[in-house]
């Protein structure tokens, strides 16, 4: 299972699942837990100028040392280059992490593996931190609990609903546009009972939408009026993963028209390869 948020992506085993996700595009934090009580922390922060990584790591470790009062605390920092440093610490918990500066996005990203015990984290951290990828193009990758979409970079996360079998994230782009990315599991079971087109119309709450079959998937368009926005959605079926995925846009601006690559399909209809 990969985890991607605001285009910051980690390739993780299936044992990892998100525990907490906070923040926005400028600054944020995600914590992922495993079945073995280990945790992965992902922190990101936008900076105005290239930071001094040793200072940033020191500042961060001093904060942890403060929380580990009455327990002996040790730390070690390695500066690999101007844009990358790694560290380890041992106190109330043990951690191993790395911090990277991404100049194309003016972003500092920290990836850390933490364990409450004294287990060795070096291989886990090595594997996870080396899988870090940061999108710098016009689309950012979002992947969580089976949802796997690529959306324009200007979006901010709004409401999230992470239910078993259904993952929904609402995004906003200013006051004029709402984008909803959704993923349904158990697609074959759903479609055994319902017609795909009718199901899509009901699930996306677009009862008056006109539907066009575009080979890759279906597109629903429900025209707005003076009081409501135009709603457009693309829906794709992924038989291999037994899931259905959709992106719905509510906007009166013509530039906000969902594309197939947003839900992971290239123009020829093939799925975009992801980690």
């Amino acid at each position: 299972m990969a985890f991607a948020w605001y285009g910051i992506e980690l390739d993780l085993d299936d044992e990892w699942a998100p525990v907490s996700i906070e923040g926005n595009q400028k600054q944020g934090y995600a914590r992922l837990g495993s079945t073995r009580a280990h945790q992965v922390q992902l922190r990101w922060e936008t900076v105005t100028k290239p930071p001094s990584l040793p200072d940033s790591v020191n500042q961060y470790l001093n904060r942890i040392a403060k929380d580990s009062r009455k327990v002996s605390f040790s730390k070690e920092i390695n500066i690999a280059s101007e844009s990358e440093a790694s560290y380890r610490y041992s106190g109330r918990a043990s951690g191993r992490g790395s911090i990277r500066y991404i100049p194309d996005r003016n972003l500092v990203v920290l990836v850390e593996c933490v364990t409450p015990g004294k287990d060795s984290l070096s291989s886990a951290h090595q594997k996870i931190s080396s899988s870090l990828k940061v999108d710098c193009g016009d689309l950012y990758h979002w992947q969580v609990l089976g949802l796997n979409v690529y959306l324009p970079k200007d979006l901010e996360v709004g409401k999230r609903q992470l239910f078993a079998g259904r993952t929904t994230i609402h995004f906003t782009a200013g006051k004029h546009t709402i984008v909803t990315a959704e993923r349904w599991g158990l697609a074959s079971e759903l479609l055994a009972k319902h017609d795909f087109l009718e199901w899509a119309r009901a699930a996306l709450e677009l009862p008056r939408a006109t539907i066009t079959d575009e080979d890759v998937g279906i597109r629903l368009v429900q025209k707005g009026n003076l009081f409501t926005r135009t709603q457009t959605a693309v829906v794709g079926l992924y038989p291999k993963e037994n899931r259905i995925q959709s992106v719905k846009v509510q906007s009166n601006r013509s530039e906000w028209n969902p594309e197939w690559r947003w839900i992971g399909f290239s123009k020829d209809g093939s799925e975009i390869e992801t980690a």
């Binding site: 299972m1 078993a164 079998g165 599991g185 037994n242």
Partner: peptide, 15 residues
């Protein structure tokens, strides 16, 4: 069998 993710399978099973 149903190609769910771990968390999903565990939560549904538990309920």
């Amino acid at each position: 069998r149903y190609k769910m993710n771990r968390l999903e399978a565990e939560a549904s099973l538990s309920a």
